[in-house]
Nucleic acid binder design. Structure first.
Lengths: 340, 340
DNA sequence: AATATCCGTGAGAGCGCTCTCATGACTACT
DNA sequence: AGTAGTCATGAGAGCGCTCTCACGGATATT
């Protein structure tokens, strides 16, 4: 009984201090690698730590240091999208990998609606994390402003629609990428182009549409064949059907993401159009799945991993006290496969 | 200057107490919803909280309560696998969704190798989380035992190879699912069956192989055509090539997961075999991608979402002090598509 | 040899919260 | 009317850690 309780009770700094015959402060110094500790004492303390199996308590440390050594990754999406969007999964994994070895922990926060969102703001302000990574923001989102005002280091993934001074973000060159896609279609000789655009309230959606339009107007063409989707496969299928109905002569389509491109592919197959012979298709994101479609999808590579890594690095330097850096825009590139 | 600093300084319980003209203890009661507070005082406190924008500090609360209201989701995978395996993404998202509304936060921990693993054990023991969810365990993993010994509530996803008494897990009926798959192949008239099995050191791998073997021996056949992969697409492609070389007459293949099945499909296509006419293929997992392969993949639906949800529920009840429940095994079902 | 400097160490004051216990003011019982 | 019980509230002791400051002994300076 007594022995069990002795073993049960978690050792604290004081326990270790007593075992090593020194003061609590000295043990703390050893743990935090202070240079002002004599080697003998250091050894004694480390032996005691090993013998007792001591592990510092994070809550106590956080309280004393006003630091938590953890960051939040906030995503805001309705359930369905989240589950089927591989881009987000990549961001999550890449972020967690970027954090390995830094001693910083990742807290995943899924806020679906506004109510949850305001709770989230409280959560963050409660000091449970040192900084916030914002993924997949919609435009009207009040969160960046809230966090900025609260003085919480924040990095946004993608360009926020309204630029807030002092808010750093890591975007991907959506305009350039979409332009690349449209040019590819043009170069292949397709002339009756259409696009399946993303939601207007997300910059990724509007930027890609802008890039597409830029490429077309540079080639002296009108970009007036547009159908909108919401980045899901179903919406892409639907949008393609609309396009086919309105413009039966279409011979090339740029879809603002791969999921919608896959939907378009399916619609096209059902309509008896061959890809790429009758209609060429270019997607956007280069998700894993794009390699296995029939035909494999030509698409724009989205550097999700690099983006997550960059966001993490920027966040950590900001937490470390560095000034807010300029926004970063990562380059995109065309991945040639067989759908054009 | 002075005003800024007033605004800057985060309010604490004492600040609120002073503003409301009560004691700290009373404010604490209000925050924690204690019934023993008069309505007037409660109002006064809530007004003060609102006016000051007070948010409780989690670290301090954790320290005092010896509870953190957060759980860890630990995954152990080499980078590449993690990034391309959609199953894991689903587990992550489903877990985060299951936690919504519980007030419990999710900490994502990515331990790739043993060194990181032992650090992880320390991390968990440091009391930063109240419980642990273990996803995608390899067999020799010392972690479950470590956590069990440390008295940390733990739930494992999938059946651990060696059953530790007191360790609860939520498994999927791998044996039954694989059996279903093999039977489907048999019923379709395929007789020269082979299988692409998963790693021997993961129970998901060996269980699925066992199910396949059971179905075959029930049908009076030998299950001696086996090639092993590691659950990646590339390994599936490779394994299929091996199978084709060793048994050119094969007319049906069960792959232990969809990724490997997709690899097999690709290999088969390259070899000029038609699916399902020449060779039928059944996968396992029912990942999103399986819908879009050519032909769409017949597979076993893996209830990843239900599994994550169940694991989360069990973990929370254990944290709440309930006894460790019996292991749960979730049923699987066949999803008929066109590859058989 | 006397004073100044440095360095390893300990004492102790917080960090912001919860929780037990004590304290009065009331209500309820005999 | 007197005692017991109830209830809202406050005082204060931790929770486990970090960090400032003080202290004494060893080393460097003049």
């Amino acid at each position: 009984m007594g022995e069990v309780s002795v073993r049960r009770q978690k050792p604290t700094l004081d326990t270790v201090a007593a075992a090593a015959g020194v003061s609590r402060a000295t043990v703390s110094r050893v743990i935090n690698g202070s240079p002002r500790v004599s080697p003998e004492v250091k050894d004694a303390v480390e032996t005691a730590i090993g013998k007792l199996g001591y592990v510092p308590n994070r809550a106590a440390r956080s309280l004393a240091m006003r630091r938590t050594d953890s960051v939040a990754l906030v995503m805001r999406e309705p359930d369905a999208t989240v589950l089927s969007d591989p881009y987000l999964g990549n961001i999550i994994i890449a972020t967690s990998q970027a954090l390995i070895g830094t001693g910083v922990q990742l807290v995943l926060v899924n806020a679906r609606n506004d109510a949850e969102h305001s709770r989230l703001a409280d959560y963050v302000r409660s000091g449970h994390v040192d900084g916030v990574l914002l993924a997949s923001m919609h435009d009207d989102d009040p969160l960046p402003r809230l966090l900025l005002d609260a003085g919480i280091p924040t990095v946004v993934g993608g360009r926020p629609q309204r630029h807030l001074p002092g808010l750093s973000y890591v975007d991907v060159d959506n305009v350039g990428g979409a332009q690349l896609a449209a040019e590819r279609l043009l170069h292949a000789g397709h002339r009756r182009l259409a696009t399946i655009a993303g939601p207007r309230d997300m910059t990724a959606g509007s930027d890609r549409l802008a890039g597409y339009q830029r490429a077309l107007s540079a080639a002296g063409r009108k970009a007036d064949r547009v159908a909108y989707g919401d980045f899901t496969r179903e919406s892409g299928e639907q949008a393609m059907a609309t396009l086919l109905e309105r413009h039966p002569d279409v011979d090339g389509v740029f879809a603002a993401n791969d999921l919608m491109a896959i939907g378009a592919l399916r619609c096209l197959r059902a309509a008896g159009r061959r890809v790429p012979d009758d209609v060429a298709v270019v997607g956007y994101d280069d998700i894993e799945m794009a390699k296995y479609t029939e035909p494999p999808l030509t698409t724009i590579h989205q550097p999700a991993v690099a983006q997550a890594r960059t966001m993490t690095e920027i966040l950590l330097t900001q937490i470390g006290g560095d000034p807010v850096p300029d926004p970063v825009v990562l380059p995109t590139e065309l991945v040639e496969r067989e759908s054009v």
